[in-house]
Design a protein around this nucleic acid. Structure first.
Lengths: 339, 339
DNA sequence: TTTAGCACTCTTTGTATTTGATTGCTAACT
DNA sequence: AGTTAGCAATCAAATACAAAGAGTGCTAAA
């Protein structure tokens, strides 16, 4: 309740408790901190500080005579105020660098590689989603005839994303027709935001009735469908979470599986964060009811301000925030061409 | 041990025990079967039969004074000999029919829909994988230039599968060059099995050096890569399994998650079955060590003898084989255009 | 061949009891 | 005033034991 700033020793105690708890997964006793973390006081002194921190809402107890664990407010304070230096080793930096050097042809693959790397280095479960198609600008649109009643539409955006979709017709289409459509569609659509693609598309229906509705309509429908559909959610290291002691509770494990199985939930979760920087949601801070027992850290992977996908970590509230944030920061920098 | 054929009453008892155990997940007592499943005998008589069936290896006990559960041999006998009529309701048939009527543009989507339907109807976790690209014949191959240093390659197979891949170059490529390549590649590759695509491709390197190696080499490499890579594994209803009592054991639950997380394992599993009909693997019958505590039922979804993907169910050994097999059979028939 | 009866086995459930870790508080110490 | 030693109080977890209940196997009779 009291919103007085914490004095230095209290900060030290809180930090020590968070870090110890993150390591051991056991409530932290006053004794465990004496002569540790630079706290050269007796257990009684630590106990007094812990008592104060609990009154101020930063710590919780599991029962009257147990050690302390950080409350959500405690974790939040830790994340906001107490993480100073980077928690990432030289080996990890090297490993991450080497992984990110992999050449990829599609930017979605880069997001997958980054998510995979984060999961490997942090040992948490990661989820990722490709870039949002809406609000990208169309660079080029191409139609390729496959056989006589099937066509591939390829949309290339300015940020280098490629979307393909197959369109089937009820009547034959000639190469000549496709060629003309290529020309026409490009003329109308180049430079347009993909989001508003259906407006210029509608115009074809009325303006240029050189083709039958049977040809134009499936094209419009299919393209609309493709740009509107959520991109696939990718999952990395679901099993890693099950090594953590909090997942020994069947209740928790079940909830976790349910969350991972609900792609829309993951998708919403990844899209909800602010575009800037790294977003940390601790327990109840999560919008979604199903996530209130977990913590989520997301970041939108951007290059030159262009959305290239979002990566998220889902884990217990007892998460190694310092490490997760450090790894994400480093990867973010690397992806943006930093060193 | 004794391989004498089971008499009618023993068959009835075994069948009753399997079905009762599948329903209740509790060891079946002799008492539970009296005046049930057409067994109008006292519990003592049933007990004698159970004792015989146990000696013959069809039943197990969890401890000396417990009821019986089917052994793997018991399940196997049940699957091979005791399932007679279809275990599928009118409502389920209607539901499945309606789901399968969804129009799809890509055959992989059909496999996904079928897998999803199976999971919904059986309440088990399903996995699926797209058709194997190797051993398909190339119908058409198209290159589409995107910008000046990026190209999309589209491979269309005779069974209607479409594979796309993006190729990047270190030098500019002209539309004229792409056009010629389209012509050349199609000439050489049409009708060839996709599996042996790299042999004709190699010939370009030596025979037709009109283009620089910088152009031809990335094409060959990328196409090779795409046809060799395993298609994605899709997962449906992982959470459904966690409702089953056997997954209350943390050990089992963890193993299960590990299996689902190991895509290569799933992929191998799905590819290992015989192409014909439905394959049932009960516990130890599974090749993979990790699956020995589970049962797996797979079927290759084929149309006109062409592989269009494989669907598998993973669940506890106490699986409702009768229902699973019935549902798969029905879907298989439907996909092949039956009624 | 079937079944009633009963001793025996083993799990499950419930209930104390003990052990050990940790706190909160008080009084003494620096 | 801040720090610490000491100690009673608290509670979870482990241990032990007893009782209940479900089910079998076997024997002897129908």
């Amino acid at each position: 309740m009291s919103n007085k700033a914490l004095d230095d020793r209290k900060k030290k105690v809180l930090q020590a408790i968070v870090e110890e708890y993150v390591n051991t997964a056991e409530p932290v006793s006053s004794n465990a901190l004496t002569n540790n973390y630079g706290l050269n006081y007796s257990s009684a002194t630590i106990r007094n500080e812990m008592s104060d921190l609990e009154k101020a809402g930063y710590l919780d107890k599991t029962h009257t005579s147990s050690g302390r664990i950080p409350s959500e407010k405690g974790y939040r304070y830790y994340v906001d105020e107490l993480i100073k230096e980077d928690h990432i080793s030289i080996e990890e930096i090297k490993y991450i660098s080497s992984k990110l050097e992999t050449k990829v042809n599609e930017i979605e693959d880069l997001t997958k590689i980054a998510a995979n790397t984060i999961s490997e280095v942090t040992h948490y479960t990661t989820v990722s989603i490709g870039p949002k198609t809406t609000n990208q600008l169309i660079e080029e649109i191409k139609f390729v005839l496959l056989g006589t009643r099937m066509m591939l539409a390829v949309i290339l955006t300015e940020s280098g994303m490629v979307k393909e979709t197959i369109i089937k017709f009820d009547e034959d289409v000639t190469p000549k027709q496709v060629e003309t459509m290529n020309y026409m569609f490009n003329n109308k659509l180049k430079g347009q935001p993909i989001e508003t693609i259906d407006r210029p598309l509608e115009e074809y229906l009325y303006d240029e009735m050189t083709y039958s509705v049977n040809v134009i309509k499936p094209i419009i429908e299919q393209i609309k469908k493709v740009i509107q559909e959520e991109s696939n959610v990718y999952l990395e290291g679901a099993n890693k979470s099950f090594e953590l002691p909090e997942f020994n509770s069947l209740e928790v494990a079940k909830n976790f599986i349910n969350v991972l199985d609900t792609k829309e939930l993951i998708s919403d979760m990844l899209n909800s964060g602010f575009a800037e920087d790294i977003n940390v949601y601790i327990g109840e801070e999560n919008q979604k009811e199903e996530l209130k027992d977990f913590s989520v850290v997301t970041f939108k992977h951007k290059v030159n301000g262009k959305d290239l996908g979002t990566i998220g970590i889902i884990g217990p509230k007892r998460m190694d925030y310092a490490k997760v944030i450090s790894v994400m920061k480093y990867i973010s920098k690397k992806l943006n061409g930093g060193n």
